[in-house]
């Protein structure tokens, strides 16, 4: 499965990559902000996106909105420190499928990825 990690923190991307690797997903592309991600999605054709909210150049919410205009089916998990209910609702409205609030444990991230993929497969 092709997965794209969008986060301005390299450490955070490495943590997520390690969790994905333990789940058996090794095909991973990285982007450092929304703009970088938009330039890569066309060629990479990801099947799952893990997106941070607060990033320079283009934040995660703007990226989700833009991406959803062209692709409605690829699952997106928002991984962010934004924990307020209103923010979560904004993200869901923009087209996010699941939400992980930082700080998270590797187990929690792993659980969210698995449940998101299972839901999307069931819906398809």
């Amino acid at each position: 499965m092709r997965i794209m990690l969008i986060d301005d923190s390299k450490t955070m991307r490495n943590i997520q990559k390690s969790v994905l690797s333990q789940l058996g997903y090794t095909q991973v592309e990285e982007a450092c902000d929304g703009q970088d991600a938009l330039s890569k999605v066309g060629a990479y054709q990801p099947e799952l996106l893990l997106v941070d909210w607060n990033m320079p150049n283009m934040d995660g919410l703007t990226f989700v909105k833009t991406f959803r205009q062209q692709n409605k089916s690829v699952p997106i998990i928002m991984v962010t420190t934004e924990a307020e209910k209103s923010r979560v609702i904004d993200a869901i409205k923009a087209g996010v499928n699941n939400y992980v609030v930082k700080p998270f444990t590797p187990d929690l991230l792993s659980q969210r990825i698995s449940e998101t993929l299972a839901k999307c497969q069931a819906a398809a």
Binding site: I15, T81, V101, K102, T105, P106, D107
Partner: peptide, 19 residues
């Protein structure tokens, strides 16, 4: 209540412990 920076550091530390 954690700042955004603290939340990220907590994630890193939890990953370090698990690893």
């Amino acid at each position: 209540r954690k700042t955004s920076q603290q939340a990220e550091e907590l994630t890193e530390l939890q990953f370090e412990v698990t690893s």
